[in-house]
């Protein structure tokens, strides 16, 4: 079940990582990219997954993973990663 969820998480996060890198390039600001990753990036990546791969939610649902639960879990994980990175970032500076 964990591996199945990770498959979903990494598939969704591809979009998020790509756009976060784009934010770094455009703003030259690592902190902005980290905040983007944990907030707007989650929303954008989930929306893109929904647009391109919405049908795949049936794959996860058949294995007992509800759409609502995996979306929420991904959002929380990204937020937690983002908060940890912001704390580390502030600690360094």
């Amino acid at each position: 079940m964990t591996e199945l969820y990770l498959k979903y998480y990494f598939d969704v996060s591809r979009y998020n990582l790509l756009f976060s890198i784009l934010v770094i390039i455009l703003t030259q600001n690592l902190l902005a990219a980290v905040v983007y990753f944990g907030t707007l990036g989650s929303v954008v990546s989930l929306a893109l997954f929904r647009y391109h791969q919405n049908i795949e939610y049936y794959f996860y649902l058949n294995a007992g993973l509800s759409k609502k639960a995996i979306i929420l879990k991904s959002f929380i994980i990204n937020l937690v990663i983002s908060v940890i990175l912001v704390i580390i970032f502030w600690g360094i500076h």
Binding site: Q53, E56, F59, N62, G64, L65, S66
Partner: peptide, 20 residues
């Protein structure tokens, strides 16, 4: 029924992740 793993559903479209 799906979350409780009682009913499985073969959708008329293919729902498998394509890049795997």
């Amino acid at each position: 029924t799906a979350i409780n793993k009682q009913v499985a559903y073969h959708h008329q479209e293919v729902f498998l992740p394509k890049h795997t």
